[in-house]
Design a protein around this nucleic acid. Structure first.
Length: 955
RNA sequence: GCCCAGGUGGCGGAAUUGGUAGACGCAGCAGACUCAAAAUCUGCCGUUCGCAAGAAUGUGCUGGUUCGAUUCCAGUCCUGGGCACCA
């Protein structure tokens, strides 16, 4: 950059000039570093991105899923969605909207705590540092965030309101009659009047009491009952318990039944846990999907997660001799029509009846199996292909034909779903069939020829046989018949079931929101609103507390106040942050009603599918609850959702000859992956992608990369060391992360932004490859040269544009506007490239043209657009310039080069007027030499003509 | 295992409603400019056959529907995401 070209004759020389003399010359070159710095500073000083809560413009709310500020900083995968949303926000602003486009940090979480455990650094400190890094990285890219609205979930003035919302949920229940959340006081008033007959208990379905009984409950009992209704409630749940570490582990800290750190055994342990009663909202979460613009795939994932099914809960009597007689085994089935095909029962190994019903002969086998299952994660149990299980020795009686059915336990039945017990029908269910085969359990066929004995058939169309009173009925119809009969006999009920479970809402950790709850005599009391925020206390050690409790249990000052020692999970703060952005500094409320009424729903929400069923469902539930309680006026948080794909890492590897410090270039390896005639074994080692150009290793950089490679030897091919490449997750440990800062430094933010978009559709996952960025950078330089010649200086003119030039412009307006509208930013970028190429071909430097192009470009490359906009002599910022309006008349065509096929195969093209009638087109097509050749004198059977598209002659 | 998505040149991708497959860019090759390099510009660039004209073939794989399929249907393989304490 330090220099300029001068021309002598027709030759050019690059002159080295001192820094203070280059300004005027410099302007002729695309000096992106100076330009970007200048405008970022200017926009900051003029508060160009500040968004008011009052405006006569229509509002538009564009939101990114905010990041967890990890210690590794931002890598090129993060900004993909942010760039997309930034482009869209700027586009909407140009189109005249008041656009809310905020950013913040989801700053509570496990990694900061683990880091604290390892290094003793307080999570608040590391989090603050990480946020500073993230912010500077984000600002580098030139995003138009209104930073005055930044939120950090781990700051007391934010989590005060997370705690406050928790208390609202705590003080609410879901009224199934009105289908909304209502205050607990509504419930107690009802209890006083009529007991719980109008409000069946969601936490304990068999609980029934009268007004008198309620009146006579003591306080503890009353609170206990209410706990079973609250939308946030305390119960018991299983966690991954690691005795050796004395702590509870997250699922991804457990690998194959042992802890990831140290490989200690991990077992299931029941602990007191907080939950959100999201199951009460299951139906509304389903219905709400109809009113939002999410992809079908996303809706399907959420629907499947909620997993609504209907069927029946049926009781079977247990009939074995030794014990358990008189007990009932309750199963849930969606296929009661197959009741006569039940050949065995399977109950979850942790089912409460197992202990009572197992026979003495089977006791040992059962216990051994339970020990095995305890070490298994739910994931492993579901994914297991190997069939396993143990007979309990007990039998149940089929209520319809009295058949004795053996009761088994197996890991494929989970305690948490339905009743934790199933009736197995091997002729109709594949898993049951395999189980029966494996354990040689005889199979009853109730569907005649539909079942051939080699695989189960889940049909509902068969006519039932061997099925008592159902014989002759079609299965579909039998479902209803059985449910009616079951209810008539009082041995079961019709039942709607949900796969979704209540959301576990507590963690035995330090770095999360404290619960504003005090425990007194085993009863949970909420803190008063005035006591919020309940601040996280300082700790000296992040070690777990006794008996699986969190670190807070180690603090006497905390426990002496009887405060809850659990903290809230990562998703607490993220379940409502989109509301806080609307009114981030409010000290009186989580968000002023006026602000939320103005901004309403998020119009476009951009984020990854990995949040499909977690964060998105929780936010939807919180929004619905806040709506029900009258705090906001909309009950779906996100009107439209765009899923951004993941950027994967493209890892590079070097081959080292086993036991040496010599590295062999990839192409020199034998086919079997060994080296040389001696067939030396080689090790494949990760190497930092940043010291590899494409596939070619920078050998000097490699030697400096790590001490152990200082004296490395290389066996080269064609003088180069060629690396192996593989696509993997982008992660520091794989040395495949690329820092956006480096690319911005080298090519500028505008190039970086456009290149990320140019990689492909936002929704799609793709590996990162730095190589192509040059092309986008060249494009911006080419654009610059439409304005400035490096010798002649400014080259734009005030001349009137020609028709050909106007056509280029309006074609571009159409393509780019439409691409931006449908989030197809990659084709948007290519639209700019085409426009610049064509203007270049036309040698067009007319201000009229270029100016419009700059406005189109503003959302994608704001810095260069603003600079050139100013250079052209415009007043005001390009950020608010009028968006060019497409006019059809400039792009109208009169004729088209029609593709002409014979029998569907393209043979030639003919230029035909768009006015031509079908008859004229047919005539022209048949007269065509090429068509005649392919007709070989035969008459055409048919001619298909689609106006403006194609002609096909069928022989 | 279950749910969801995606497979198109050497590479990233385009083709919006079933109508010219490969836009745009990278890499590569050839050329211009240059003492040289960089930068820039021009041309070529799916595969096979052919001097060429042209022909055949080609969107993971196997079938189907259609005048016509990357696009719709059935099956299948592979890759990625999620599966409830990573965020």
């Amino acid at each position: 950059m330090q220099g300029a070209y001068i021309a002598i004759g027709n030759k050019r020389y690059l002159l080295k000039l001192p820094g203070n003399q280059i300004n005027q010359q410099n302007r002729m070159e695309y000096n992106f570093r100076a330009i970007e710095k200048k405008w970022q500073q200017h926009w900051k000083e003029t508060e160009a991105y500040r968004v008011p809560n009052e405006s006569n413009k229509p509002k538009y709310y564009v939101l990114d899923m905010f990041p967890y500020p990890s210690g590794a900083g931002l890598h090129v995968g993060h900004p993909l969605g942010y760039i997309a949303s930034d482009i869209y926000s700027r586009y909407k602003r140009l189109k005249g909207f008041n656009v809310l486009h905020p950013m913040g940090f989801d700053s509570f979480g496990l990694p900061a705590e683990q880091y604290a455990l390892d290094t003793g650094q307080h999570p608040a400190v590391t989090t603050r540092n990480n946020i500073a890094t993230f912010k500077s990285q984000l600002n580098n890219i030139g995003f138009c965030y209104d930073w005055s609205r930044e939120v950090n979930t781990s700051e007391p003035h934010y989590y005060k309101w997370t705690q406050w919302i928790f208390l609202q949920l705590f003080d609410s229940f879901y009224n199934r009659q009105t289908r909304r959340a209502e205050r607990i006081s509504v419930l107690t008033t009802a209890f006083e009047k009529e007991g719980n007959k109008s409000h069946p208990c969601p936490g304990d379905p068999v609980l029934k009491f009268t007004a008198d009984e309620w009146e006579n409950f003591d306080t503890a009992r009353k609170m206990d009952v209410l706990m079973n209704y609250r939308l946030s409630y305390c119960g018991y749940g299983e966690v991954n318990w690691c005795e050796a570490l004395g702590t509870v582990l997250a699922n991804d800290e457990v690998v194959n039944g042992v802890s990831e750190r140290g490989s200690y055994p991990v077992v299931k342990k029941k602990l007191r846990q907080w939950y959100l009663r999201i199951t009460e909202y299951a139906d509304r979460l389903l219905e709400g999907l109809e009113s939002v613009d999410f992809s079908e795939a996303m809706k399907e994932m959420q629907t499947n997660w909620i997993g609504k099914s209907s069927g029946a809960e049926i009781e079977f009597s247990i009939t074995n001799q030794e014990s358990g007689v008189g007990n009932k085994l309750k199963v849930y089935t969606t296929r009661p029509d197959t009741i006569f095909g039940v050949d065995f029962m399977v109950i979850a190994p942790e089912h409460e009846l197992v202990d009572q019903i197992k026979t003495e002969e089977q006791a040992k086998a059962v216990e051994e199996y339970i020990t095995y299952v305890k070490s298994r994660s739910e994931r492993e149990r579901m994914a297991e292909k190997k069939i396993s299980g143990v007979f309990t020795g007990a039998f149940a009686e089929n209520p319809f034909d009295g058949r004795q059915i053996p009761i088994w336990i197996s890991e494929y039945v989970l305690a948490g779903y339905g009743t934790g017990a199933i009736m197995a029908v091997p002729c109709g269910d594949e898993r049951d069939f395999k189980f029966a085969q494996h354990f040689n359990i005889p199979i009853t066929n109730i569907i005649g020829s539909y079942f051939k004995g080699d695989e189960a058939n889940p049909t509902k169309d068969a006519i039932l046989q061997n099925s008592g009173f159902l014989n002759g009925l079609v299965m579909k119809d039998a479902i209803e018949a059985v449910i009616r009969e079951v209810e008539k006999r009082g041995i079961g009920v019709r039942k709607t079931n949900y796969k979704m479970r209540d959301a576990a809402f507590s963690r035995q950790r330090y770095w999360g929101e404290p619960f504003p709850i005090k425990w007194i005599d085993g009863v949970a009391y909420p803190l008063d609103e005035k006591e919020l925020p309940l601040q996280l206390p300082h700790v000296d050690s992040y070690k777990p507390g006794p008996e699986g409790e969190g670190p807070l249990a180690n603090i006497p000052a905390w426990t002496s106040q009887h405060l809850e020692t659990n903290t809230m999970p990562g998703y607490a703060g993220s379940s409502w942050y989109f509301l806080r952005y609307m009114d981030p500094h409010n000290k009186e409320a989580f968000c002023d009603r006026k602000a939320s009424d103005y901004w309403g729903q998020v119009d476009v929400y951009i984020g990854g599918t990995e949040h499909a069923v977690g964060h998105l469902l929780y936010s939807r539930m919180w929004t619905k609850a806040l709506y029900d309680l009258g705090y906001i006026s909309h009950d779906e948080p996100f009107r439209r959702l765009i899923n951004q794909g993941m950027i994967q890492g493209s890892s590079r590897f070097v081959y080292r000859i086993n036991g040496t410090n010599t590295f062999v270039s990839k192409g020199l390896l034998n086919e079997d992956g060994t080296y040389s005639e001696r067939q030396d074994k080689v090790d494949m080692l990760h190497v930092d992608v940043n010291i590899v150009d494409g596939l070619e290793l920078d050998i000097e950089a490699f030697k400096n990369w790590r001490d152990e490679y200082k004296d490395a030897q290389f066996i080269l091919e064609d003088g180069k060391y060629i690396c192996e490449a593989e696509v993997e997750k982008m992660s520091k440990s794989k040395y495949n992360t690329v820092n956006p800062d480096d690319l911005v430094q080298k090519y500028g933010a505008d190039t970086f932004r456009m290149y990320e978009m140019f990689l492909g559709p936002v929704e799609m996952s793709k590996p990162w490859d730095t190589k192509g960025i040059e092309g986008v950078h060249r494009f911006l330089k080419k654009l610059w040269r439409l304005f400035y010649d490096e010798i002649k200086g400014k080259v734009w003119t005030e001349e009137k544009a020609t028709d050909a030039e106007l056509k280029v412009l309006h074609k571009s307006i159409r393509q780019i506007e439409e691409a931006t509208d449908r989030f197809s930013f990659n084709t948007g970028v290519s639209g700019f490239m085409i426009a610049v190429n064509e203007l270049n071909d036309l040698d067009c430097h007319k201000k009229e043209m270029l100016q419009s192009l700059l406005v189109l470009l503003t959302p994608y490359a704001p810095h260069i657009a603003e600079e050139l906009w100013q250079q052209l002599g415009n007043e005001g910022s390009v950020l608010d310039a009028p968006y060019p309006v497409f006019e059809e008349k400039y792009v109208k065509e009169t004729s088209k080069e029609y593709p002409v096929s014979v029998n569907g195969k393209l043979r030639t093209t003919i230029n035909i007027s768009l006015e031509a009638t079908p008859a004229e087109v047919e005539k022209l097509a048949l007269e065509n030499e090429v068509v005649q050749k392919w007709l070989e004198g035969k008459a055409p059977k048919k001619i298909i003509f689609v106006k403006g598209k194609m002609v096909n002659v069928v022989v």
